[in-house]
């Protein structure tokens, strides 16, 4: 699937924006101004961006606790995201969701999710809607290797096969479910291989390679749109930070942590490929880098100075109150 220069630059911009968004949160979290639990997507940006390039606003994604990247890639407003993470009134969810439950249904985002694996059946449901109403839409659930062991993810895959739903189950295998190594808990050590037993195409790809992700997810989305049913993709990815912010990652070696940043950074890899393939100059990419930094800095300052929701609005959008 050939990509134009402008598409490639846009992909780089989105990945760079997500990286900067997350790095900003990593730094700012130490100030205590960001409430709650935070799970950063650094290292996995290529996955959300490459997959979502195939999707329209009328397509749906269901994300997980590590969801900032998926939401940004699917078109969530960056400032609205930042405001929500700071718990402010003008956040995407008016300060009711926060990092783990951020959503924008108008952009086809069924939410990050605090429950591991929950996105799989929700995405299958969105795909059922698309199929029943004939919208031509597709749905993607993003989940990790940890979610690959949740029973209802199996249930969702089985039903998607039974009903030939236009859904892609995208597993970002970053090697760790919370603190526990993938190989310790995935009995077959092979998520795609296990999924293939459900009777659908299941592929394993390099989750640090933007182009490979773009290709594989493009085929899956095309197949779904053509009414040819679901796909499982296992993308072998890397996680830079801990399970949550504050996790010292004592279970990972210094060598591994250095290696993933040095040699398996999807952003760095894309940058090198763009320059080597003469798709973009270092100068053009540097300019995008600076714009991403400026954008995130501006969003942060807006978010910091924005108002919190009024306590009088506490029970807004409840439909039964006592």
């Amino acid at each position: 699937m050939a990509l134009s220069k402008s598409q490639l630059l846009e992909a780089y911009r989105r990945m760079r924006t997500i990286r900067e968004f997350e790095e900003n949160i990593h730094r700012e979290n130490t100030t205590g101004e960001i409430p709650g639990f935070l799970h950063l997507y650094c290292g996995q940006e290529a996955n959300a961006v490459a997959v979502c390039m195939h999707l329209e606003d009328t397509d749906y994604i269901a994300s997980n606790h590590r969801g900032h990247g998926h939401c940004l890639a699917k078109g969530a407003d960056v400032e609205g995201m930042m405001l929500e993470l700071y718990g402010k009134a003008d956040g995407l969810c008016k300060g009711r969701g926060g990092s783990m439950h951020i959503a924008d249904v108008s952009r086809g985002i069924l939410g990050a999710n605090g429950i591991v694996g929950a996105g799989a059946p929700l995405a299958a449901g969105a795909a059922l809607t698309a199929k029943t109403l004939g919208t031509g839409g597709v749905a993607v659930s993003f989940q990790g290797d940890g979610a690959s062991n949740e029973g209802y993810v199996f249930e969702a895959i089985n039903m998607a096969v039974m009903w030939q739903l236009p859904v892609i189950f995208y597993f970002e295998n970053n090697g760790y479910g919370e603190f526990t190594g993938h190989d310790h808990v995935v009995g077959s050590k092979d998520i795609a291989g296990r999924a293939a037993g459900f009777g659908l195409p299941a592929v394993k790809i390099d989750g640090t390679d933007f182009f490979e992700i773009h290709e594989a997810s493009g085929e899956a989305v095309q197949r779904a749109r053509a009414g040819k049913g679901p796909t499982v993709i296992e993308a072998v990815a890397v996680r830079f930070y801990g399970h949550y912010e504050g996790d010292p990652q004592a279970y990972r070696s210094k060598e591994e942590l250095a290696d993933v940043r040095q040699n398996r950074d999807c952003l760095k890899i894309l940058r090198q490929k763009l320059i080597a393939g003469k798709k973009a100059s270092a100068r053009e990419l540097d300019a995008i880098d600076r714009e991403a930094v400026d954008l995130i800095n501006a969003c942060r300052e807006t978010a910091k100075s924005a108002a919190y929701p009024e306590a009088s609005t506490l029970t807004d959008n409840t439909y039964v109150s006592y």
Partner: peptide, 26 residues
């Protein structure tokens, strides 16, 4: 069968499908 859908005995799975479908237009 497109509107009266028999499911596997997968309560969590089909309830999730129902929730996802409800949030998207059915």
């Amino acid at each position: 069968a497109g509107r009266v859908i028999d499911t596997p005995i997968s309560e969590m799975g089909y309830m999730g499908v129902a929730v996802g479908a409800a949030a998207t237009g059915l």
